[in-house]
């Protein structure tokens, strides 16, 4: 079972709650996904439309809230949002996002590390959103991050795991869980991340903007389960040759006659 900072999750699919047509649709999609962890953002109350209330929509006894710091452009803004989020949610869990570039929303590695160091000191359980940089992932782990969340491709692009090579290195090296976040546009992308050995994936846009978000949530649920199962079962390597490993054929082998017995 997936364990982050001592909390167990039977579902390895995290769902973002943005971009849904309504709170009701979001709630139904989250339920269909089987997810036990959803991300939420903090915003000023829109005084002209004060009744859109996500806290009421979801059953928090079953679903863990992971507040994010979306909108923060530097470490200081992220820390301020984190403190508000802690008071508002009653949880010290945090998805740390620091995105200074409004076009790509790519995360700032320097301020993400800076904010992580501070927030860990302040008692937060920090899950930083990062570019798929293995050394940054290790530095964040050393700074006390509870998991790392490398992106598959820039947020909202639906391009899938364009960073596969780097994500694989992160998975291989990290002591903390690796949650692939952003860019997952189809259930097959989610399955691929899970087959690679990711501990979980976070999906938002692909579910929220689907023709039928509730059915799409179910499709992602199945894909994540299948991908994890395949990873645990042990995948074979795709091979161009029919059977390169049989001793009679294949590569040139060195002469081992020097070995005595």
């Amino acid at each position: 079972m997936l364990t982050i900072a001592g909390t167990q999750f039977s579902s390895r699919l995290f769902v973002g709650t943005g971009k849904f047509a309504s709170s009701r649709e979001m709630k139904e999609a989250v339920e269909a996904s089987g997810s036990q962890m959803v991300t939420v953002a903090l915003r000023r109350v829109d005084l002209n439309n004060p009744h859109d209330d996500i806290m009421q929509a979801l059953d928090r006894t079953k679903i863990h809230f992971l507040p994010n710091t979306s909108g923060a452009r530097n470490a200081e803004e992220a820390i301020r949002l984190a403190k508000l989020a802690r008071v508002a949610s009653g949880t010290n869990w945090l998805k740390l996002e620091v995105t200074p570039d409004p076009r790509t929303l790519l995360p700032d590695p320097v301020d993400t590390l800076k904010a992580t160091e501070q927030l860990v000191k302040d008692g937060f359980i920090v899950l930083p959103y990062i570019n798929a940089d293995p050394i940054l992932a290790l530095r964040l782990q050393d700074a006390g991050a509870a998991a790392v969340m490398p992106l598959g491709s820039p947020i909202g692009t639906n391009q899938g795991i364009m960073t596969a090579m780097q994500v694989e290195i992160i998975i291989q090296q990290a002591r903390v869980p690796v949650v692939v976040d952003a860019g997952i546009g189809a259930p097959s992308h989610a399955a691929r991340a899970m087959e690679m050995g990711a501990d979980a994936v976070l999906v938002n846009t692909a579910i929220a903007v689907a023709g039928d978000p509730v059915r799409m949530a179910g499709a992602f649920r199945a894909a994540v389960e299948a991908g994890r199962e395949a990873y645990e079962a042990g995948l074979g390597k795709p091979s161009k040759q029919a059977s390169a490993s049989s001793p009679e054929e294949g590569m040139l082998t060195p002469d081992l006659d020097f070995i005595q017995d």
Partner: peptide, 9 residues
């Protein structure tokens, strides 16, 4: 018996 293949890799 796969020692040569292992050596090659």
């Amino acid at each position: 018996k796969y020692l040569p293949q292992m050596a090659a890799r």
